[in-house]
Structure formats: structure tokens, C-alpha cells
């Protein structure tokens, strides 16, 4: 049984893009349904897309491209899991939505979240090396939130930029091996996203979701998503943390033979390597 893992948003674009029929087909979908040029990695003329929305569309498109490549060599998933932004391409692999809908959803959600950036500055912070208690305390003490529980020593903190930077400084003082921060257009995976919750939900309600043909394990409660749960999940996953360590620990016992990270980068594989090393 093949397990497909769909990663979250990449931090950056790759320098060169694939040149083949599958990529071109996805580029056509991106241009038509998002106003995004996947080849040039920029909005098409006249389209108004923020940097992060472009990065989100790109991330989903790359996961869709990797999926197509796997199907083409006869590899089909028997189980699917997602991390954050990975949900959109994961839903496609589960046959619950089409590629077009996934790209439209990520584009529209991204544009909706971008509106938050006009009022406040947000950031994501990455402390590495501390245990969960110290990271949670640093976030709590400074008005930020733990957004990703990736491994026992790798987390993401999210919130207003000033709060995230203060939390990271506290993490550094507490002995973190490294801390780094990244600008973000919205406080992803925090309760602060409630500000745009009605808009996000209204977008999702315009689409129809079908029962997954391949089981899809979500990364909040580690349950298998049903079609009726998908609309709410697509909104709630932006307000709640990603619990990747719990998710991987559950998946480890699922009996898969081959595990593939389906998207840009190798972050999930590295998290899994860490978790595996701790649980062997």
C-alpha cells in the first residue's frame, strides 16, 4: 500500500520549473482559474495576487504535478495524509475535488487571507531544539500561538509579527538551537484567523465535495475526512494548529509499504525521520 503525504506551503519558488506536458497542463489551469503564470512564477498581466498567494498556488500546483507523475508510472495512493496547505492537493488525490477546484480554492482563500495583511503585520517563527513546554510558554507569554507541532523539537509559531519575534527571542534565551522568522500575510493556524472565517467559509460553500475514494487522514485530529466534513475542515484547519508528529505516529502503524512526499521539498520526510529515530 502506498502512502502519499502532501506537504504545506513551500518557503520559496524553485529556480527552474519542469518542461513537460503535465506541467504545461497545470500551467494552463493556473492561468485560467487563478490568473497565475506557473512557468514565469508570477501573476498574469492584470491579475492581482500577493506574493504569498502566488507561493500557495505554486505549492498546490507542484503537488498536483508530482501526483500526475506518480500516476503516470503506475503508482496510486492507498492512503493519503496532509499538512496544512497540502489539504488542497490531498483532496484531489482522494478524488473529492478536481484539480481546477483545488487551484481555485487555494487562490481564493489566499486572496481572502491577504486582506488581513493590510491591517497588521504577521509572521511565522521557527524555533528548533526546544521541547514543547518551552515553546508553548514562549508563545503564550508573548501573545503568539504554536501553529505547527512538527516533531518533538520542531515547531512553528504564528501571530502578529511583534508577538512572534518576542516569542522567538524568549525561545532563544531558553536555549533553542536556532530560531528564524518569515513574514506572512495572515496569522495562519491561529484563532486570529476567525476575523476572516465567514469569508473563508462562504468561498468553500460554493463547491461540492464527494466522498474520498482513497482514505485521507487530516492533521488536526488524525481522523479520516468525509465529504460532509471537508467544507468545515478547510476553514478550521486555518484556525487550528497542525499536529504532524501525532499524524505521523498514527500513519506509521497503517501498514504502508512505500511512503512518498508529494510536492515541493522534503520537509515532511525530514520530520518523519526525526520522529522515527525517537520511536525506534
Amino acid at each position: 500500500m502506498n502512502l502519499w503525504l502532501f506537504p504545506g506551503q513551500p518557503l520559496q519558488f524553485v529556480q527552474s520549473v519542469p518542461v513537460d506536458r503535465e506541467f504545461e497542463a497545470l500551467a494552463v489551469l493556473c492561468r485560467k482559474h487563478c490568473g497565475y503564470d506557473l512557468v514565469k512564477q508570477q501573476p498574469v498581466s492584470g491579475a492581482c495576487l500577493s506574493h504569498h498567494t502566488c507561493l500557495q498556488i505554486y505549492g498546490v500546483a507542484m503537488s498536483l504535478y508530482c501526483s500526475r507523475q506518480l500516476y503516470n508510472v503506475g503508482c496510486n495512493p492507498g492512503l493519503i495524509a496532509e499538512h496544512s496547505l497540502g489539504i488542497y492537493a490531498a483532496l484531489v488525490a482522494a478524488k473529492s475535488i478536481s484539480e481546477q477546484v483545488a487551484l481555485e480554492l487555494v487562490c481564493r482563500h489566499g486572496s481572502c487571507m491577504f486582506r488581513m495583511a493590510s491591517q497588521k503585520e504577521y509572521a511565522l517563527g521557527c524555533p528548533i531544539g526546544l521541547r514543547v513546554e518551552a515553546v508553548e510558554a514562549a508563545a503564550r507569554n508573548n501573545g503568539a500561538f504554536v501553529a505547527n507541532y512538527n516533531t518533538s523539537r520542531h515547531f512553528l509559531i504564528s501571530g502578529e509579527k511583534v508577538a512572534v519575534e518576542a516569542a522567538l527571542a524568549e525561545c532563544q534565551s531558553a536555549g533553542a538551537f536556532s530560531v528564524s522568522s518569515y513574514p506572512c500575510e495572515a496569522p495562519l493556524h491561529t484563532p486570529l484567523m476567525a476575523e476572516v472565517e465567514p469569508e473563508l467559509a462562504a468561498i468553500v460553500q460554493e463547491y461540492r465535495f464527494t466522498e474520498p475514494l482513497v482514505p485521507l487522514v487530516e492533521s488536526i485530529h488524525q481522523t479520516r475526512l468525509t465529504a460532509s466534513a471537508m467544507p468545515a475542515f478547510l476553514v478550521q484547519e486555518l484556525l487550528q494548529p497542525v499536529y504532524w508528529e501525532r499524524t505521523w505516529l498514527k500513519l506509521r502503524n497503517s501498514g504502508f509499504v512505500r511512503c512518498t512526499e508529494v510536492g515541493s521539498g522534503k520537509a515532511l520526510s525530514k520530520f518523519n525521520r526525526w520522529i522515527d529515530a525517537e520511536h525506534e
Partner: peptide, 22 residues
């Protein structure tokens, strides 16, 4: 940076050598 922390742990385990920070 994820790899770095894994190497820090391995160095400590195999050689007893600590890398305190990034």
C-alpha cells in the same frame, strides 16, 4: 536546519560532543 539538529543529536550520541547553538 532540520538536518542540523539531527546531526547535533548524532554527534552528542556518538562522540559525546555538544554543539550548543546554531
Amino acid at each position: 536546519s532540520i538536518d542540523a539538529l539531527q546531526l547535533v543529536v548524532a554527534m552528542e550520541k556518538e562522540f559525546g560532543v555538544v554543539v550548543p547553538d546554531a
